[in-house]
């Protein structure tokens, strides 16, 4: 028996090759048959999903590190997010996962019309998700709750006004010019840090670099003790949820929360968009009847990708929106 390999050899194209089955023209020549192509594609897509997990992993690392070391930022800033919108988005994605999985089933059972409808539902859900995200993002732009330096809200999450550095009382939300310095610096004033100085914002201590006492008392996560409101500090050690009092201003570097928020949801959104493009292509192909029980790999693999997108959101939602 010559050890020929799965019948490889270009002269003899065994099986499934232009013999009356409409889908078989999609079996590529170097595969033995449709099952060989399907199995290879399946392994391929799982490897791709594995690398997608690692692609997102760095963002989760950043999230975990920043939240562990500076929980006050997360506990303050997450209130700017609308839990209802996030929950609706979660529901939308879960529904789209169902329709994607059902699309695979429909293709396997040769239910062509059902297949098309399932893909349509998936697409609509995906577009709905993107629409809601657009609404959320525009709200953030409107409230100046953006990443890094651009985090300059005029209102605390509970709606009370935040004093601007140049302290003009009674500023309304819409007309606030974005201050040049973010509010989380020491009153926006470049002053020599003097312990206990009467700096503009009462109740927040300026940076005292040579003061080890403040930083040494608390554990690792509490260098933020310097410059954070005493109220927040005390309640942190008690372990209870932070009570952002009406006059509370954001803790220092709160923009970092939004950096991470936009990085994570932005990258996720790009993947949703990629999924939309793939599903549009699949919709066109399925309307032409390309898929059936003998050939449905692309549907299966796209659905797997889509489930991963859903998986990532399943974690993003509680991590970003449901912080206690």
């Amino acid at each position: 028996m010559s050890a020929s390999e799965h019948g490889h050899g270009h002269g003899d194209q065994a099986g499934g090759h232009g013999h009356g089955e409409p889908q078989s023209r999609f079996i590529q020549h170097h595969f033995d048959d449709g099952a060989h192509q399907f199995e290879s594609g399946k392994l391929g897509i799982w490897l791709f999903l594995g690398q997608e997990v690692l692609f997102f992993s760095a963002l989760f690392v950043a999230y975990i590190i920043y939240r562990h070391n500076h929980p006050e930022i997360f506990q303050y800033a997450h209130k700017y997010l609308d839990v209802k919108m996030g929950a609706i988005n979660t529901g939308v994605l879960i529904l789209s996962s169902l329709s994607a999985a059902w699309a695979v089933r429909a293709a396997q059972l040769n239910q062509q019309r059902l297949l098309v409808w399932c893909i349509v539902v998936t697409l609509l859900c995906a577009l709905g998700f993107l629409g809601i995200k657009y609404v959320e993002y525009s709200a953030k732009v409107h409230h100046h709750t953006l990443f890094g330096k651009r985090f300059a809200p005029t209102e605390a999450p509970d709606g009370t006004e935040i004093e601007q550095p140049d302290a003009t009382p009674g500023k309304t939300e819409g007309g606030a010019p974005a201050p040049k310095e973010p509010l989380n610096t020491v009153g926006g004033v470049k002053a020599q840090p003097v312990p206990g100085a009467a700096g503009p914002p009462p109740g927040s201590a300026p940076v005292v670099p040579g003061d080890p006492a403040a930083s040494k008392e608390e554990p690792a996560s509490a260098v933020s003790g310097v410059g954070v409101l005493p109220a927040i500090e005390a309640q942190k050690t008690a372990g209870a949820a932070i009570d952002t009092h009406a006059s509370a201003r954001p803790p220092p570097n709160t923009g970092m929360f939004f950096t991470i928020y936009f990085a994570m949801t932005g990258l996720h959104g790009i993947h949703v968009l990629g999924g939309v493009i793939v599903f549009i292509w699949l919709l066109i192909r399925s309307m032409k009847g390309h898929f059936g029980p003998k050939y449905y790999g692309p549907i299966d693999f796209a659905a797997l990708y889509w489930h991963l997108v859903d998986l990532i959101w399943i974690f993003l939602f509680p991590l970003l929106y449901l912080i206690a």
Partner: peptide, 17 residues
Amino acid sequence: IGRIGIFDPALGGDPVL
């Protein structure tokens, strides 16, 4: 490009990260 601050210590970021 966007100065998001994830690696910028002035904005709370961490270059060792």
